[in-house]
Design a protein around this nucleic acid. Structure first.
Lengths: 115, 115
DNA sequence: CTGTTATATACATTGTTATGTATATACATG
DNA sequence: CATGTATATACATAACAATGTATATAACAG
């Protein structure tokens, strides 16, 4: 999915955004989410429907439950969309330097960027 | 500004998103934007008001015109918000490798002032 | 088959939002 | 000051979105 107004629209509801954040890194049944956000089950199901139609989540049946999880693509797409704005706040080099710094602890054999 | 539902809400209108994208990298007067998006001047002014209230744009008077431009912070904040989801699609190392590749071509140009 | 649990959907309601028209304000120019 | 240009805002309208209640579907347990 490409990033457009509909994508932002999907994340523009507070309850729906809470659902997305609750799903970060884990698979959730509808009932799990009802406990975490302050609305009725019907509301959660509707939000999940919207998220699914928008391609943000995927579903997998598990007995009588349905396990929802985030799909990676939309987030990757949002990251790509942000690329067009990155130069507003830092040069790619700065960004790279920061990434390198974060990385250094784990991987010391990476090439220095400039030189 | 932290990234919350209101932030996404601000970008969730197609016209408003077109305005943001039209302002990418350049300062625009209201009249400039009227030419680019298909609504009346009053509508553009209202959208700019919303973008300004949300902290996405800044204004600078220039005679009888008002020059709008994007503020960097919200985009930086969105990038930081995305951090929490990055591991869904690639490791930081993959990300770094891609950044390095993109950087290689432009590197000398960006660092020229320091040599 | 019956009762129970999990999830989805139809409907009504209420609140919000985008837009155009009309008007106001602010600055510029002569 | 008078006129023109650029931008902002008030108001009315029409479309949309989120929610709860009630109900439907589907799977499971016995």
């Amino acid at each position: 999915m490409r990033v457009n107004a509909d994508f932002f629209q999907t994340l523009s509801d507070p309850t729906r955004l809470r659902i997305v954040e609750a799903m970060r890194g884990r698979e959730c049944a509808v009932g799990d989410l009802v406990e975490r956000v302050a609305i009725r089950q019907s509301g959660v199901s509707r939000h999940l429907r919207i998220l699914h139609d928008a391609g943000l989540v995927q579903v997998r049946p598990d007995g009588q439950r349905r396990l929802y999880s985030l799909r990676p693509e939309p987030f990757r797409d949002l990251d790509a969309w942000l690329d067009g704005y990155r130069r507003h706040w830092e040069s790619r080099l700065d960004r790279l330097a920061r990434a390198l710094e974060q990385q250094r602890a784990k991987r010391s054999h990476l090439t220095e960027p400039r030189r």
